[in-house]
Design a protein around this nucleic acid. Structure first.
Length: 431
RNA sequence: GGAGCUGUAGUGUAGAGGCCUAACAUGCCUGCCUGUCACGCAGGAGACCGAGGGUUCGAAUCCCUUCAGCUCCGCCA
């Protein structure tokens, strides 16, 4: 029995006859000698075919193949070895011309075309790396929070009402009732905190029916959500996020440096992240960029500008913008004790783009009911959410990160859709 | 929802009233080549220039309609 190897491990098999499975990345025929590049998910190896064996006529790029041969040393090859090919079995043939070239350093095709043929674009090592890195971020997120005694939960994505009344919801048919796709696990994760799980997180999809059509919006995105009970204030949440980011970037550096190397990207250094209140940001923007804030909220241009400023003046890629205005935040956000105009809320801005919002939440029943009324909503509709607030709800808070945005800012990609396996946007529903 | 821009072989681009029987690169097909590594060389196929209408002696090129896409804004992660 011939032993099967992952390509990245082939150096250990020098001198042995091995079997490798993968896809043909490139075929170079030079008369009675041919070179092939075989890729699997771990790497690429060169195969050498001497003479003109019968299988040579059958092979071409992107076929799924099983290659048998002997591993020999080769100084010029990245792995230090190559395979003297004896046999190639085509497991999955290619039946038509490829929609774009997969063996160049970059896929040179428009994003729309790439996404129309998503499965094939994922065959490209660089595209695949985007998702290996995304997987690494999520794994690090889980590891860090597990260590901090959080419990991973899964909340319903089919819900009866919206959470904040703000962003638009997809309506769906639920037997004979009307239902919606959840735009956030917000209520459920708070309920879980009050339930005694105390610290919870969730990795899952959220849905936004906003008809926006930009390079940073999706209709379905993966939200990294967490909520923590018994906090003394907003600062506890900020500290948690700071440590979490440090953990995630250290993890990427350790386990994904090869994936990262394919991109024009440098991992950020997470020192103490500057905290600036919206009011402070307002005066900086006015002084530095002649752009005063009209309300206690940031538009995307302000986010870009203040992010530039913080990078230049404080040397940080990150910023916590804190204490947003009451009108700019949902009803479950804790109002500030020292200033009734603002809330104990924050956004984390990374390289000019908002990554997440978070806050200390209201935990007092009366305040919450009152806030609901102030936003023009009916407390009766929130009965199932409100129940736990009458049975020992601790002070708590949390945040939610859009993982796609984090990925594009780490990798210096220009469109969030590049960071989704099968994106759903304003117009795209397939593949 | 609003504004601006773009649609030309499989892919990426050039052409901006007559030079177009539409060019270049790459991919594809055929042949040659025993150390290539973006292999090379020779040959070949492949586009009614997004669609429909109009202006003009003449339209890929100008105008209108329509469809598709991109960017930005609003809003959000």
């Amino acid at each position: 029995m011939i032993k099967k190897y992952w390509i990245e491990d082939l150096a250990q098999a020098e001198g042995q006859k091995v079997e490798v499975e993968g896809w043909l990345h490139r075929v170079r025929k030079l008369g009675k000698l041919a070179f092939i590049l075989i890729k699997d998910k771990t790497g690429i190896v060169q195969g050498v075919i001497t003479g003109k064996p019968p299988f040579l006529a059958e092979i071409s790029g992107e076929q799924a193949v099983r290659v048998t041969g002997t591993v020999t040393p080769s100084k010029q090859q990245p792995l230090g070895v190559e395979i003297q090919v004896e046999e190639i079995e085509v497991l999955g043939p290619v039946l038509q011309e490829l929609p774009f070239e997969l063996n160049q350093a970059e896929i040179s095709a428009g994003l729309e075309h790439v996404l129309d043929h998503r499965v094939l674009s994922l065959r490209h090592p660089k595209t695949a790396s985007v998702f290996k890195i995304q997987s690494g971020i999520i794994k690090a997120f889980r590891q860090f929070l597990d260590k901090e005694k959080f419990t991973e939960i899964h909340t319903p994505k089919i819900v009866a009402t919206g959470t904040e009344g703000g962003s638009e919801l997809f309506e769906i048919k639920y037997f004979d009732q009307k239902a919606y796709l959840a735009q956030s696990p917000q209520f459920y994760k708070q309920m879980a905190v009050g339930s005694g799980l105390q610290r919870v997180y969730e990795v899952g999809p959220v849905y936004r029916a906003e008809p926006h059509n930009t390079s940073r919006h999706l209709s379905e995105l993966i939200s990294l959500d967490l909520e923590m009970g018994f906090i003394s204030g907003l600062e506890d949440i900020l500290k948690l996020e700071e440590e979490m980011l440090r953990y995630i970037f250290a993890y990427l550096e350790e386990y994904h440096s090869q994936d990262l190397a394919l991109f024009d990207a440098t991992l950020p250094e997470v020192k103490t992240i500057p905290r600036l209140t919206i009011k402070e940001i307002g005066s900086i923007l006015e002084k530095e960029y002649k752009k005063p804030l009209e309300i206690l909220d940031l538009d995307s241009e302000s986010e870009r500008l203040i992010s530039q400023y913080v990078k230049k003046e404080m040397g940080s890629d990150f910023l916590f913008a804190t204490h947003y205005g009451k009108d700019a935040r949902p009803m479950y956000t804790q109002p500030s004790a020292h200033d009734s105009d603002v809330t104990e809320s924050f956004d984390m801005i990374f390289r000019g783009l908002k990554m997440n919002s978070g806050a200390q939440r209201v935990h007092e029943y009366d305040v919450l009911v009152n806030n609901i009324k102030e936003k023009g909503l009916d407390p009766a509709e929130f009965a199932s959410y409100l129940e736990i607030f009458q049975f020992g709800m601790p002070p708590h808070g949390g945040y939610a990160i859009g993982v796609e945005r984090l990925v594009i800012k780490i990798l210096n990609l220009s469109n969030v859709r590049e960071a989704v396996l099968f994106p759903r946007d304003r117009f795209r529903l397939t593949p």
